[in-house]
């Protein structure tokens, strides 16, 4: 957190910026697929990264996570920023023999220390705590392959939380879930957001609950060259977003603005437009 003096002499705490993009160009080869992006993700914010399949969500996410290089501009991260990542379900080979506790413990394996065969003392306690936060403590000794999709998602959330991340990134976390399980995941994320001063970024092409819960949105369309970024209400009011009738997919709560207590902080500029 950083302090900012406001008119009248009071000091208000501004949530710290965890990761920011400035004129960030993303794409493949040397071809940018979206207009340059400007954004800042701060503590306490829940960002939705939305767009159709093939809209550039994965490319943006990979660029933010460092597995793809930006074509231009900069990504500024808070030094030593800890990121927890929940991959798409399909990325994990279900045949890998593992218990739930093993999957969660894998989230502690970082840096060159992974070349030591044993985890440091105290790891077990951290894993159990993360499983408890993710409502998966009772699954600890179960074989991962025998779990339901909703249970698997909670295990991956525990794996991401075990390293005490400041930024939690989830790639299509609810794509294989029914409505009830999807709602449970979002309620869990809401609790995590309330308990820990972290930021969450969720990529999804399922808009309903994400539009309802997000404080901020990236809305991107590769084909139209559109990137609308900022607080949810502003993005939802963007002409392109309105033109796409996306609000029809969201709940009345989302359309009505911020009502869930997770206030948007700051304001990114709405960018893009047709290129």
């Amino acid at each position: 957190m950083s302090a900012a003096r406001i008119p009248g002499g009071a000091v208000a705490e501004t949530p710290a910026t965890l990761i920011a993009g400035r004129r960030l160009a993303i794409g493949w080869g040397d071809r940018a697929i979206l207009p340059p992006l400007d954004f800042a993700i701060r503590e306490g914010e829940l960002w939705g990264l939305v767009g159709r399949n093939g809209s550039g969500k994965s490319t943006l996410m990979k660029t933010l996570l460092g597995s793809a290089s930006p074509l231009g501009g900069t990504i500024d991260m808070r030094p030593g920023l800890r990121i927890g990542y929940v991959p798409q379900r399909s990325e994990w080979e279900a045949a890998v023999p593992a218990r739930v506790i093993d999957i969660a413990a894998g989230g502690l394996d970082s840096g060159w220390a992974t070349f030591l065969p044993f985890r440091p003392r105290g790891s077990k306690g951290k894993v159990e705590a993360a499983l408890a936060v993710a409502d998966a403590a009772d699954l600890a000794t179960r074989r991962y392959a025998t779990l339901s999709e909703g249970q698997k998602q909670r295990v991956w959330l525990a794996r991401a939380l075990v390293s005490d991340p400041e930024l939690l990134v989830l790639d299509e976390p609810t794509s294989a879930l029914d409505t009830a399980a999807e709602r449970a995941v979002f309620e869990l994320l809401g609790r995590v957001l309330a308990q820990r001063r972290i930021a969450i970024l969720i990529a999804s092409h399922q808009l309903g609950l994400l539009f309802e819960r997000a404080t901020h949105l990236f809305y991107i369309e590769r084909e139209a060259g559109v990137a609308a970024i900022g607080p949810r209400a502003e993005v939802l009011a963007h002409p392109i977003v309105r033109e796409r009738n996306l609000l029809e997919l969201a709940s009345p709560r989302a359309a009505g603005g911020l009502t869930d207590g997770a206030a948007a902080t700051g304001s990114e500029s709405i960018q893009g437009g047709r290129s």
């Binding site: 990979k62 996570l65 460092g66 597995s67 990121i83 927890g84 990542y85 991959p87 990325e91 994990w92 080979e93 890998v96 894998g106 989230g107 394996d109 970082s110 840096g111 992974t114 070349f115 030591l116 065969p117 985890r119 794996r159 390293s163 990134v169």
Partner: peptide
């Protein structure tokens, strides 16, 4: 642990 992380969760390994 390193081989398992990279073989089965490559993006997660990169993030960590």
């Amino acid at each position: 642990r390193a081989f398992a992380a990279v073989a089965f969760d490559p993006i997660g390994a990169q993030v960590r």
